[in-house]
């Protein structure tokens, strides 16, 4: 059986954390669990969602569900 070449995932996202209201819909929609809740509060007084680098593929599911439209996705 031939080995299947898998391209290494190479995505990243930028979350504008001070505009995050903390709904965390991005977290449950990330297939790879790359978004976490921050330890510290943002200017709105909520713990924002933050990107945790790793096997992000840049699928943009987090950005698609974000009601604030504050996630930019790069590949």
């Amino acid at each position: 059986m031939k080995a299947i070449k898998v391209k290494k995932p190479s995505g990243k996202i930028k979350i504008n954390k001070d505009r995050c209201k903390g709904c965390y819909l991005c977290i449950v929609n990330c297939p790879n669990g790359r978004i976490k809740i921050a330890e510290d509060l943002n200017v709105k007084g909520v713990k924002p969602a933050i990107f945790s680098p790793g096997n992000c593929t840049g699928c943009a599911m987090c950005a698609v569900i974000c009601p604030e439209c504050i996630i930019e996705v790069y590949r």
Binding site: Y24, L25, A63, C66, P67, E68, V73, Y74, R75
Partner: peptide, 26 residues
């Protein structure tokens, strides 16, 4: 790197007044 997702041009770059998790923003 290639940006694959960003705010659409006609959606003004300001905070909306909706509650957290409200679908209106989407």
């Amino acid at each position: 790197t290639n940006r694959v997702f960003a705010r659409p041009a006609t959606l003004r770059d300001i905070d909306n007044h909706y509650c957290a998790g409200c679908g209106h923003g989407i």
